[in-house]
Simulated scan of single mutants.
Amino acid sequence: MSDTSKPLFPCLNEHNYKRWRGDMTAFLMTKQVWGLVSGADKAPAVTEIKVYKEWRDNNWSAAGHIYAALEDSQKIHVSGIETDSVRMWAKLKEVHQQKISGTRFKCI
């Protein structure tokens, strides 16, 4: 029996963000934590203790899965935010997704 708790795709490196993002999204969906990572499922009020603890545990689970799917060279980007899956996801996007100007700046 294969271990489905670990991703079956290459870890994120300097060259594979686009592919990794798609694979990781699908993986987090199978773990039922994508809504949290994508920001669709917002954190409940801390006063709702049972609901908050479930959300927190799912957040930590998602963060652990994301961290485990990074090559060592990529872990520096999430240093200090390893327990916040939403911030980790946003930071990795910021680092790897190039913001390219359109053709309006193309020299002819």
Score class of each variant (00 low, 15 high):
M24A: 14
M24H: 07
T25W: 09
A26P: 02
A26V: 10
L28K: 09
L28G: 06
L28I: 13
L28H: 10
M29E: 12
M29K: 15
M29D: 11
M29A: 13
T30K: 13
Q32F: 13
Q32N: 14
Q32A: 13
Q32K: 14
V33H: 04
V33F: 04
V33Y: 03
V33R: 02
W34C: 08
W34G: 06
W34E: 08
W34A: 08
W34L: 10
G35F: 01
L36C: 12
L36I: 15
V37K: 02
V37M: 06
V37Y: 01
V37F: 04
S38A: 15
G39Y: 12
A40F: 12
A40W: 10
A40G: 07
A40R: 13
D41E: 15
D41F: 10
D41G: 07
D41I: 15
K42L: 15
K42Y: 12
K42P: 07
K42V: 15
K42S: 15
P44R: 06
P44K: 07
A45D: 15
T47L: 06
T47S: 14
T47V: 13
I49Y: 11
K50R: 14
K50T: 15
V51P: 05
V51G: 05
V51W: 09
V51Q: 14
Y52W: 14
K53N: 15
K53C: 11
E54A: 14
E54T: 13
W55N: 01
R56C: 04
D57A: 09
N58H: 14
N59R: 08
N59S: 08
W60C: 09
W60R: 14
W60M: 12
S61Y: 07
A62K: 00
A62E: 00
A62N: 02
A62C: 05
A63F: 07
G64P: 04
G64N: 10
H65T: 06
H65I: 12
I66K: 03
Y67W: 12
Y67I: 08
Y67D: 07
Y67C: 05
A68V: 06
A69N: 05
A69C: 10
A69R: 05
L70P: 06
E71K: 06
E71R: 02
E71L: 03
D72A: 12
S73Q: 12
S73L: 07
S73I: 08
K75W: 01
K75Q: 05
K75Y: 01
I76C: 09
H77Q: 04
H77T: 00
H77W: 05
V78K: 00
S79V: 03
S79Y: 06
S79N: 10
G80L: 02
I81V: 10
I81T: 03
I81C: 02
I81M: 04
E82C: 02
T83Y: 04
D84Q: 01
D84T: 01
S85V: 04
S85A: 15
S85C: 15
V86M: 04
V86K: 03
V86E: 02
M88P: 00
M88C: 01
W89C: 00
W89S: 00
A90Y: 00
A90F: 00
A90H: 03
K91W: 01
K91T: 13
